[in-house]
Design a protein around this nucleic acid. Structure first.
Lengths: 143, 143
DNA sequence: ATTACACTTGCAACATTATTGCATTTAAGT
DNA sequence: ACTTAAATGCAATAATGTTGCAAGTGTAAT
């Protein structure tokens, strides 16, 4: 990924190399997610693209397609609403991280500085079978 | 909880001590959940109460009310359907531990051997404000 | 540049799950 | 029995997500 690549070109490249066509709707969607520090719902993405007047079905389909191509990750955080975020391709293949959900305001944030450790191998499910970690509580603003 | 108490009386007592009225709909709902080995959806509870002809809104409200009173736990598996189960009051009631939700079968188990560590104090929400930890994945049986 | 065509989109209809307003009924304390 | 707040039934509504199909468009080949 070229460092002088702007967000637009980055998104275009990301979509193309996933084998999809770089349409305005997809580029805009990816740019919105790229500019967000936390996973967004379909409704939130739609809101931010309001001026482009993209159909909601198109946004749903694009989000789904990008998940299928491993560009986005789709997470269930406990409120029965899907949230989408860009999968960062970092040194570690493991980009997945816990998410924090505020029980007061519903805001979601990424907790990249938290990790889990399993003390013993017991009868409980193994950590390696865990696909999602959700922390619920009161965010800094609501606390 | 008296050992010779039958399911009916047990349910009634459970509801009353939660500060709610022991209506037929609530008693029947609790009995269904009590007799089930795994969490049930609203639709599943409804099905089992079909002969009682209880309105679906009533069942939704009762499930919600019982969740609010900590009689039931409501979990999201990722398929946009809530699942409900009775919270068992066991020995480890007070020490908080992560809960594991199987996204395949919906079962919820306790993971007492898992602990969280926050590497650095950053801008993200503090671990001390976390009230509940939910791990989602595939349980040993479904894996 | 033009063209061809599979891929995308917009639109509208639909499906499912869950919630709410309000008049009526009921549980439970007196 | 009486009273009253709590609970229910019914119907309308909201929220989230999906699907069918005709029209439009990004891409690669010409």
């Amino acid at each position: 990924m070229n460092s002088k690549m702007n967000s637009q070109e980055w998104a275009r490249e990301k979509i193309r190399s996933a084998g999809l066509r770089a349409t305005p709707a997809r580029i805009a969607t990816l740019k919105v997610l790229h500019g967000s520090g936390s996973p967004l719902t379909h409704a939130e993405v739609s809101d931010k693209l309001e001026n482009l007047e993209i159909d909601k079905a198109t946004i749903f389909r694009n989000l789904t397609d990008l998940v299928a191509k491993n560009v986005l990750r789709r997470s269930a955080l406990g409120d029965n609403v899907w949230r989408f975020e860009i999968i960062k391709e970092s040194a570690h293949e493991h980009d997945s991280h816990p998410h924090f959900v505020c029980v007061d305001c519903g805001s979601v944030s990424c907790m990249e500085d938290v990790e889990l450790k399993q003390k013993s191998t017991s009868a409980s499910p193994l950590l390696e079978h865990v696909t999602e970690v959700v922390l619920r509580g009161h965010c800094n603003e609501c606390a």
